[in-house]
Amino acid sequence: MKPMKAFLSFLVLIISLQNVIGQEKPSPPEGMVYVPAGEFVMGSTYGDPDERPQQIASTKAFFIDKYEVSNAEFAKFDPTFKFSPEKKNNAVIVTWSKANAYAQWAGKRLPTEKEWEKAARGIDGRVFPWGNTYDNTYVVWDQKETRGTSIAKPASPYGCYDMAGSVWEWTADWYKPYPGNKVPMEQYGETYKVMRGGSNFNNHSFIRTSQRYYVLPEKIHVYPVGIRCVKDID
């Protein structure tokens, strides 16, 4: 398993370096970072069955929010949205349709699963946004302040914060099997949306960059799910 993974990572690295060298890096809008086009290692060989098969996927270049959308930011879109003033910088928790509406209002959109995962782990198939080693201080595990305030403040390879922990993040995608996945699940289809990144209320494995979780888009109950938007590059 390990030699295969190393080979895949090396291959992607070479291809991506060629792509990156050939790409001009556009300036991202305020609060966003640039993710170049190209291939990356997606999925895992050791997580839940729905993360398989590990594959080489690719995206176009895009911009993505550096932080999750805060309560105060969401309230600019929806003035009826209520929150206590001391939680203005906490990540907002909303249903999928509200998240999608916010993204459109902001001139952006929700990321696809591929875009989210690439922004979180870069091209080398790493387990966490900062690398392969877990550390409590790298993760936002409390609700006091949920934007970029883990003790060590590590960023993803492209400069995003809190893609592990804090709140889950909505993607645009329905929960479907990856191509080549043969493990049946009755939840696959167009009933559940995929959320990524884990929250401050689940075990450490759920903050892995390849972890997928499904939830009814309009009935999130007590799942804390928030928003991180992407923007296409013209």
Partner: peptide
């Protein structure tokens, strides 16, 4: 029931988990 690990069900040696687990 869905075959996925539960939100707090991780004792796996191949996955990062709490020392308590």
């Amino acid at each position: 029931l869905d075959g996925k690990m539960t939100l707090w069900g991780n004792f796996c040696p191949n996955l990062p988990h709490q020392e308590l687990n």
